[in-house]
Nucleic acid binder design. Structure first.
Lengths: 216, 216
DNA sequence: GTCTATAGGCTGATAGAC
DNA sequence: GTCTATCAGCCTATAGAC
C-alpha cells in the first residue's frame, strides 16, 4: 500500500491521503512528495502540476472504486410487476446498505478508499466546478435507484416533495459521512456508526414506518 | 453592510464572506484587506494575525447569531405532564423549523449570517480543534432538545439507536446545508429547499409517521 | 490608527545534469 | 526517469514613518 511499486502510484496514494486530511489548499507539493518518498520534481513530470495530480487522484479513484461501489446487487424494481412493492422494499434496503458502504461508514477496510471518499465528499461540499462530474459518478446512480423505489412505495408526490423524501432517506447517511467528528462527539468519542449494517437496517426500518409499509 | 462604519467590522465581514467561499487556506490576507478596503497591516494590528482574525470571525458570529438562532420559542417538554406527547410533537416541529432557520436553508435574509453559517459548517466538516466549541454552541442545544422530544415519543431505545434516531430526524437538514450545490443539481438548478417552512413540515410529518404518531 | 516598505519563508514550477 | 538547484511569486508578519 504505502510501498507501492511505482512512483506514480505512490504519489497518488500520498496525495489522496493528504488532500483528504487538509484539502487542496492545505497541503504543499513538498509534503506530498515527502510522504511518497519521491522527489518534488516528479510531480510535475508525471502529472504536470498540482492540479494535474489532484485530477489524477479523482480519476484513479473513479477507476478503482466502481468495482467496489454497490457490490451488493441492486435490481431496479419494475413498477408493473405484481410484487413491485416487495421489490421496492428490497431495493431500498440494498440502496441504504450500499450507500453506507460507499460512504465508508464502517465497512471499508482499505484506508485509501476511505481517504478517496473523504476527498470526494470534500469536493461535493465545496460545490466546485467538478461537482457535476462527481454527482454523476457517485450520487446520481444512488438517487435514481432511490427515486425508483420511493416512487413505487409513495406515488404522486410533487417534485419538491420527491426531493425532500429522497433527502429524508439518504440525508442521515450523508450527514454522518460529512460530519464524522461531530458524530463521534455525539457518540461519546466512539466512531459512529459502530455497525454499518445495523445502521442501514435502522434507517430502512425508520423509512418504511414513515412510508406506512410493513417491514419485509 | 459592506460599508460598515469601522474598519474592524469591515475586516470581519470581508473575512467571513471569503472564508465561507474558499476556506481558511484558500484566502490570503491581501484579498481580505482589499475587499474590506483596508490596509494589510491593519489585520495584524487589530487581530494579531490570520488566526486571530479567523477566531474573531467565529467569536463575533457567536455573539451576533444566538439572538437570531432559535427565535422560535422552544419549550422543553416535561415527560411527566399529561400532554407530554402533544408537547413533544410541538417541540419537534419547533426544533425542525429552528434547525432549518439556523442552517440558513431559505429563511436567512442577511448574507453575513449565511456566510457565517457556511464557515461554521465548513469547520464542523473539517473536524478541527474548534469542533467541540462549535458543537457546544450550535449543535448540542438542538440535539438535546431533539433527544428530549424523541425520548418521549419513542422511549427505551439503545444508546446507538438513540443517536441513529436523532440522525434520522436532523440528518436531512444537515445534509442539505452541507451540500447546497448537490441539492441544487438534484432540484434542476433551483435552490433547495425553495420553501424552508414547507421543508420543515415535510420532515416533521415524515418523522411522525416513522414514530407512529398521528400528526398534530 | 493608518500607512509604506520590506523581511523571511514557503509555494508551485522548471531548467539542466545525470 | 530521477535528481539538484533555483526561480519568480505569493504568503504572513512587522518595523517604523506619520
Amino acid at each position: 500500500m504505502t510501498d507501492a511499486p511505482d512512483l506514480r502510484q505512490r504519489l497518488i496514494e500520498a496525495a489522496t491521503q493528504l488532500f483528504a486530511e487538509s484539502g487542496y489548499d492545505g497541503v504543499g507539493l513538498r509534503e506530498i512528495a515527502k510522504r511518497a518518498k519521491a522527489n518534488l520534481a516528479m510531480i510535475s513530470y508525471h502529472f504536470g502540476g498540482k492540479d494535474g495530480l489532484y485530477e489524477a487522484v479523482l480519476r484513479e479513484g473513479f477507476l478503482r472504486c466502481p468495482s467496489k461501489l454497490s457490490q451488493l446487487e441492486r435490481p431496479l424494481p419494475d413498477p408493473a410487476a405484481p410484487d413491485a412493492r416487495a421489490l421496492a422494499i428490497e431495493g431500498l434496503r440494498v440502496h441504504l446498505q450500499s450507500a453506507v458502504m460507499d460512504l465508508q461508514l464502517g465497512l471499508a477496510q482499505d484506508p485509501l478508499d476511505r481517504a478517496f471518499m473523504a476527498v470526494v465528499l470534500r469536493e461535493l461540499a465545496e460545490g466546485g466546478p467538478r461537482l457535476e462530474a462527481l454527482d454523476r459518478e457517485f450520487m446520481k446512480p444512488h438517487f435514481e435507484h432511490l427515486a425508483n423505489c420511493l416512487g413505487i412505495l409513495r406515488p404522486g408526490l410533487s417534485d419538491e416533495d420527491r426531493v425532500s423524501l429522497g433527502l429524508a432517506v439518504i440525508g442521515p447517511v450523508l450527514a454522518c459521512a460529512l460530519l464524522p467528528g461531530l458524530f463521534r462527539l455525539r457518540n461519546d468519542g466512539r466512531p459512529f456508526p459502530a455497525d454499518g449494517q445495523a445502521f442501514a437496517e435502522f434507517m430502512l426500518d425508520h423509512t418504511l414506518r414513515a412510508l406506512g409499509v410493513e417491514g419485509a
